[in-house]
């Protein structure tokens, strides 16, 4: 009963989030300039301009367009790309695998580096290991991703000529953007892991674990980490959702053919349906990861009652 209500609430909130995101983008796009005059040459006869406007539904008032958009979106129709006349969803979905590939690789790097650095820093608190890990964390946290991306290109592509700087043709092309994404996010994850671990390490049950005669590795792996996991999973969830969104900049710098690069291009070209579709997709991943994170809490911490409990 509790569980059903919990899921319904989450679902409603998720839908509301999606609606708000799409509405915001819809309005901003409509007031930021006329796509037709952007796409057609300046000397196009007014009749043709009017024809395009009518074809894309831009001759209607904004509220009218909005109602139509939401209505068809609910029916799974997100409009046609202004540029290549195919359904916007199809155009965007073609690029999704590339973004997912980059996002997942970046995420794995984030998790591995972030958790490792955070745990090591907490266990070696106050030592040079801790200082180094936290310096790295601040670096990752404060470095703008485009700047790190450019630095990476400068070092690995230009100076040392080790890795390709742009495109997505081979696996080699994946390395630089994935590492850039990974490092940027690992800083935050390391910080959260460290503080969460430090809090846990001073709990009475950690002393019990020591009094039981458990060695350090077991104490950390099976007693500290499960307890420190909740805040870390929250951050990881946010980062996972954000990786798709965060990939926009990184994809652009490295010309990685994913939806991030497509989004930037579509905004420039005023390809409104494509922009709306991508924003909807990004918002959807955020909502879904959040939902998964919420469900994970109950599994990580039995004290959070959102799953059926036999012992209850």
């Amino acid at each position: 009963m509790m569980r059903l209500q919990f899921i319904l609430t989450k679902l409603l909130r998720g839908l509301l989030t999606l609606l708000l995101a799409v509405t915001f983008v819809f309005i901003v796009l409509r007031v930021s300039g006329d796509p037709v005059s952007m796409m057609l040459p300046d000397d196009t006869p007014p009749a043709i301009v009017a024809e395009y406007r009518a074809a894309w539904g831009l001759d209607k008032t904004v509220p009218e367009q909005y109602v139509r958009f939401i209505w068809s979106a609910l029916h799974g129709d997100l409009g046609y790309s202004f540029r290549d006349d195919r359904p916007a969803l199809t155009v965007v979905l073609e690029r999704v695998p590339m973004t997912l590939l980059l996002g997942v690789c970046g995420f794995i790097i984030t998790v591995v580096i972030g958790l490792f650095a955070g745990i090591a820093a907490a266990l070696k608190r106050g030592t040079s290991v801790d200082h180094a890990a936290m310096a790295f964390s601040i670096f990752g946290h404060s470095m703008p991703n485009f700047f790190l991306a450019i630095l990476m290109i400068l070092l690995f592509s230009m100076t040392w000529r080790l890795l390709p700087s742009s495109g997505g043709a081979t696996w080699w092309h994946l390395i630089l953007p994935a590492v850039t994404l990974g490092i940027i996010n690992a800083g935050t994850v390391a910080r959260f892991t460290r503080s969460s671990m430090l809090e846990v390490l001073h709990q009475p049950y950690m002393r019990t674990a020591r009094a039981k005669g458990l060695r350090l590795t077991r104490r950390v792996m099976s007693h500290a980490i499960p307890n420190a996991a909740i805040p870390v999973v929250t951050v990881l969830g946010l980062r996972l959702g954000g990786l798709i969104a965060g990939a926009v900049v990184v994809e652009t710098v490295f010309a990685w053919p994913g939806i991030g690069l497509m989004l930037v291009n579509a905004v420039g070209q005023r390809d409104l349906p494509v922009v709306q579709t991508i924003v909807l997709l990004v918002a959807l991943t955020m909502v879904i990861t959040n939902f998964i994170v919420d469900l994970t809490y109950g599994w990580l911490d039995p004290r959070i009652e959102n799953r059926p409990n036999k012992e209850g």
């Binding site: 709990q203 009475p204 007693h223 499960p226 307890n227 039995p302």
Partner: peptide, 8 residues
């Protein structure tokens, strides 16, 4: 209560 690990 505090000396036992809450999540195991």
């Amino acid at each position: 209560t505090a000396a036992l690990n809450p999540v195991r």
